[in-house]
Simulated assay, not measured.
Amino acid sequence: MLVHLRGPDKTISYLGCAVQLYIFLGLGAAECVLLLVMAFDRYVAVCRPLHYTVIMQPHVCHKLALLVWASGIFGTLVQSPTTMELPFCHHHQVDDFVCEVPALIRLACGDTHSNELQISVIGSVFLMVPLLLILISYGHIARTVLAIQSHEGRRKAFQTCSSHLAVVFLFYCTVTAVYIQPRSHFSQKGGKFLTLFYTVVTPTLNPLIYTLRNKDMKGALKRLFGKDRTSNVQ
């Protein structure tokens, strides 16, 4: 996608589009489950801190990592083949930045009701169900945090969850708008912007969001911006 945005050639082969779709869906589905796993990790860290090392043992972490990748593989193998089998129109102009399911459904000239139903079901399984479980886990976390008496304890609990909450908000707000109603007027007009946002902007921000709690990272940012202000004054 970045190569196509940079150069004058905006074409992609059928095989390249299929590979892009498989990888795109696989990583997207894995991201949904990964955010759920991270929410479970936060729940254990805040609500069961004394049992954290017992619950989150290495073999449990390995199983959770396997679950993430298995979910990604399952999600892409279910949806990608049926999408690429659609009867596409002769102009073959994908109205998007990347070969994703909503754009390819809009490109099809045949009946796409079954594909739209499939994307709604898959979207509910990989988007709404993990989001619901994440909200439930944070409901328990909020109740535990409110029961903490010390201000320092509340601050530490908030810092533990703030970065994950920010990523969940950025990811789910954009992906849900595109995949829950792939044929809607909103998804056709604003879908390309949202696709570019959760494909490029969100992954770019993730490293910064997750490292804001790191003292070395904070110190480097302070030195960087402090140096810029000093340079401007001089």
Rank of each mutant, 00 (worst) to 15 (best):
A108I: 00
H92N: 08
V125Y: 06
G110W: 01
K156T: 11
P203W: 00
K189L: 08
L196G: 08
C17Y: 03
G75D: 00
V44N: 07
T160C: 14
F126G: 03
L2I: 15
S124G: 15
G123P: 03
A18E: 01
T144E: 04
V33S: 07
L208K: 07
L67V: 13
F40C: 14
L25P: 00
V78T: 13
I119L: 03
I119H: 00
L221C: 13
R42Q: 14
T76D: 00
S187G: 04
S184C: 09
A65F: 09
H113L: 10
Y210M: 13
F169R: 05
P182Q: 02
A30T: 07
I105Q: 04
T199K: 04
S137Q: 15
Y172N: 03
L107D: 05
M128A: 13
L35D: 01
C47I: 06
S71E: 07
D96Y: 08
H91I: 07
T53L: 12
L86A: 02
L66M: 12
S71A: 15
C32Y: 03
A142I: 09
C17L: 08
L107E: 15
R183D: 03
G7F: 04
P130H: 04
A29D: 05
I12D: 00
A45T: 05
P49S: 10
V98C: 08
V175D: 00
S13I: 06
Y14M: 06
H164G: 11
R143D: 09
R229H: 05
L208Q: 08
D95P: 01
Q93A: 14
F88N: 04
Q118P: 04
H92G: 01
K63W: 11
H59M: 13
G191C: 06
L35C: 01
L77D: 00
V68S: 04
